[in-house]
């Protein structure tokens, strides 16, 4: 589904991602963990098409397309969804009209007729239950005045409506209390099936108690330095990142010595 090969990116001349390799197959859940500043959010943004980054090298293919050649809206329409770490406020634009536009753009891309107002309302009602959000939320302006938890739940709600092939959730668990975390995780689990895939970017192991990943990757200093299973996350929780950093730095130095 998604193949990343030796992806290197920079912002303002500073290299952030220093050669990422990652493959995600349908039905899989990948967790990407790592200390602050390791490049986790950059990876998410680059995949979604944020144009503030320079691509230095590498290839990303998504379902056979050269992802890096596509405009962000086309990536979205082809099924890439980014759950924002800090969802953006758009004053005066109601969630309902925002989402109706988004859903119908997706339908247009697939050659489907736009949903009627009543069908759309029905769809919203159905998806609202999934993420247990306040029914008034869709009458409010996009993310405006939402609490931290509401914003995150709102991201999952949008994901439920758009039914992406690949969801990249950027620290969707940060700032959530335990109930909100459970609701968000339940939503993700319910939406999971054998045809779609999820990349979870997180600092903490606790999210992985609710959403069980198939793979756990540790991103450090712009590279994936270790890949394991759920147990790796538990180990990180227990021991912190220092041992990984040490191991990675040594490896890096070793390689350089060899050259």
């Amino acid at each position: 589904m998604l193949k990343i090969k030796n992806l290197r990116t920079a912002i303002n001349g500073k290299e952030i991602l220093k050669g990422i390799d990652l493959e995600v197959k349908p039905g899989e859940v990948h967790a990407i963990m790592g200390p602050n500043g390791s490049g986790k959010s950059t990876l998410a943004s680059v995949l979604a098409g944020r144009d503030i980054y320079d691509i230095l090298e590498g290839k990303v293919s998504f379902e056979g397309d050269d992802l890096l050649e596509l405009a962000p809206e086309d990536r979205a329409r082809k099924g890439i969804f980014l759950g924002f770490q800090y969802p953006i406020e758009i004053p005066g634009v109601s969630m309902a009209s925002f989402l109706k536009t988004a859903v119908n753009e997706h339908r247009k891309f697939k050659g489907l007729a736009p949903l009627s107002a009543s069908d759309f309302l029905k769809l919203m009602r159905e998806k609202k239950e999934l993420v247990e959000i306040d029914s008034n939320l869709t009458n409010r302006s996009v993310n405006e005045g939402f609490s931290g938890g509401e914003k995150k739940k709102n991201e999952i709600f949008q994901m439920a409506l758009l039914e992406p092939r690949l969801s990249i959730l950027d620290e969707t668990d940060s700032g959530l209390d335990i109930d909100a975390l459970r609701i968000v995780a339940n939503g993700v689990n319910k939406l999971k099936n054998k045809d779609n895939a999820t990349i979870l970017i997180t600092h903490y192991q606790r999210l992985l108690d609710y959403i069980v990943p198939d793979f756990v990757h540790v991103l450090y200093n712009g590279r994936i330095v270790k890949t394991g299973t759920k147990e790796l996350a538990l180990e990180l929780e227990e021991k912190g990142y220092d041992w990984i950093k040490k191991e990675a730095d040594m490896k890096l130095n070793g390689e350089e010595v060899k050259i």
Binding site: E73, L82, I90, A102
Partner: peptide, 12 residues
Amino acid sequence: DQIFYCNQRGIS
């Protein structure tokens, strides 16, 4: 960032 947010939801 507002434009990108919309783009990411499939809106041109």
